[in-house]
Amino acid sequence: MFPKPARVKRRNRFVDYAAYLGVRLVVFIAQSLSMRQSYALADAIAALVYKIDKRHRQVAMENLEHAFGDTYTDEQRDQIVRGVYRHFLRMVMEMLHIPKRLHLTTWRKFITLKGHEPVIERLLKGGPMIMLTGHYGNWEMAGYMFGAFGFPPHSVARVLDNPYLERYLKEFREQTGQKMIAKRGGSDEMLDVLQSGGLLSMLGDQDAGPKGLFVDFFGRPASTFKAIALLAIEFNAPIVVGGARRIGDDFQYLVEVEEIIDVNAENSSPDLIPELTQRYTAALERMVRRDPTQYLWLHRRWKNQPRAKRSKAAA
């Protein structure tokens, strides 16, 4: 007998659509505000969420303690966590304003580029490239900006459970030409992008589960997906690690390239996959250290840990 398939819980279409309408209303209100007013609203919401979201607040405090040890006191860690909530609520507001404010003729008012010259040169020459960032700064901005420049990336993201919100968010993200690829079930599309010499955009700091590749991140083993390194090796695609970091207290960002990792597929060895994975993870860590308040410490990056090897006696 074959095992019975697991039952998929049916979603309430009415609830999903009501949530969608609520989000559209919030977007309408936020887009009618000035940037300063949007920031004020974001700060107020952040202060409220900080108080009621005890679970994620505690996760962030523990992550900071593990990552930085005694570098910060409890009070300083608490201030960083407050800053994390404030940063990401402001980032949400900025995302709503980006389509109206960030264009090919206006981006210089808001964006400063650093280390971008070799990346643009490679894009002009053509060939596959993997653009990698993490849950740091405004990770949505890079994909939007490259699309405005005429180099629309294919960005990998998780599909939302709410189909109405998923469709709306996808349309919003694709306004400048970038295309979205589902994280689950989108492997063939990723291969097609790199096969055709396209630009693939991915997040490289998500927990890969108990079977992931464990590399060092802030002094702790972090389960990391092997797919990024495997794709880079298969298509001989450079991995460009970078991010968009807020500078100052306004809509001003430094979009910086932290490292360009060239892959020599001809001299590949079994150690190349963990080597590449560790290298881009270390680059992400360097960026986070510049401003810990702009990293999503609220998610359980170290959720899975390597299983302790049993000794022969114990076996």
Rank of each mutant, 00 (worst) to 15 (best):
V92R: 00
L21V: 12
F217I: 12
R173Y: 06
E166A: 15
E234Y: 14
L102N: 05
A227M: 13
G209C: 02
D188M: 12
N162Y: 07
H154I: 02
R24Y: 01
A308Q: 14
F146W: 11
F110Q: 04
K4C: 02
F225T: 15
R167S: 15
Q31T: 13
G243T: 07
P99K: 01
F151W: 08
V23G: 06
Y72A: 08
Q58D: 13
L89I: 02
L169W: 09
P5C: 04
R11N: 11
I228L: 13
M129R: 11
A42K: 00
E256Q: 15
G22S: 10
L296T: 11
P270E: 06
T112S: 07
M95C: 13
V26P: 02
I45S: 04
S269G: 10
G204T: 03
E189C: 09
E259F: 03
I80P: 02
A148G: 09
A42P: 01
Q294D: 03
I233Y: 07
S311R: 12
F28R: 14
Y295M: 08
N63G: 15
R173A: 08
R167P: 04
A314C: 05
G115V: 02
R108Y: 01
D291Y: 01
I273H: 06
A244K: 03
A182F: 03
K109V: 02
F2L: 13
K303I: 03
A18M: 12
S38A: 15
T112P: 02
S38G: 14
E75G: 10
K303D: 07
I80N: 03
D70E: 11
P99F: 06
R57V: 07
G243W: 04
K54N: 12
D207H: 14
H103N: 10
F110Y: 15
G185M: 05
L296Q: 15
F217T: 10
E258L: 05
L194G: 04
L169N: 09
P153Q: 05
M287I: 14
A232D: 10
R57S: 07
G127W: 04
T293V: 07
V49C: 15
P306S: 01
V263A: 00
F14C: 09
K9D: 10
F214L: 01
M95I: 14
P3F: 05
F110C: 00
A308W: 06
A182H: 12
V288T: 13
M141N: 00
A19D: 13
V26I: 14
R184G: 08
D207Y: 10
G150D: 05
V92Q: 11
T224S: 14
A40C: 07
I98H: 07
D262R: 06
F88I: 00
L284Y: 09
R36D: 13
Q178K: 11
M35A: 12
Q206V: 11
E266S: 14
A282L: 10
L21M: 11
A232S: 13
I261T: 05
K211D: 14
K312G: 15
A282Y: 03
V119E: 00
I130Y: 10
D43C: 02
A232C: 10
Q79K: 15
R55M: 05
Q37C: 11
I261F: 02
R122G: 08
S187W: 08
P99A: 05
P99G: 05
Y280C: 09
L160P: 09
L102W: 04
D205F: 03
Q58N: 14
V240F: 05
M95W: 07
D271H: 07
L200K: 13
